[in-house]
Amino acid sequence: MAETARRISALEGRAYQGPGIALNPAAPASRLSLRAPEASLAALSKALGLILPRKPKTTAESGKRAALWLGPDEWLLIDEGGADLTVLCAKASALHSAVDISHRNTAILVAGEHTEDVLGAGCPQALSLARFPIGAASRTVFGKAEVVLWRIAEDAFRIECWRSFSYYVFSLLEKAAREV
């Protein structure tokens, strides 16, 4: 039978390193858009092995898996180990919608002391540690693209965006990085 197709990331080959700032595409990961009512959260949390966060702008992590609160009934699940998250969710009999978006999104890692300034070139949200602490995540805009920001360390963010917007998002980040 036919051989397995090659996986080609939208940002293959792109990277930028400047003083106090580094931009790198994140490794492929499996991702899930999970939608569920309150009543299903316990069962789904159990199936996924992490407690789905209920508080706005927060995340929960367990090993290589994370759940980002995006809305009152919406989570973005990211598994850097590549686990099949739809299968995990299907094990919970609770009402939910699980849609695989592993390839819809791609991610850029922004790190370095100038991270906040570089993101500030296009993101109107307050990004200070006080307002956007480590572990916080939010859907927002970066320039003219929609993104999900996730602060993974004091001076590091993971930016999730749709595949075809990643070129624009990376380019704007790079432009801003060259200017700080």
């Binding site: 320039g143 003219k144 595949r163 070129y167 624009y168 704007l172």
Partner: peptide, 15 residues
């Protein structure tokens, strides 16, 4: 600001 040329707006390309 940055919204000029290639960054005027996102250019989306298919795989």
């Amino acid at each position: 600001g940055h919204s000029r040329g290639a960054l005027f707006e996102p250019t989306r390309r298919t795989p």
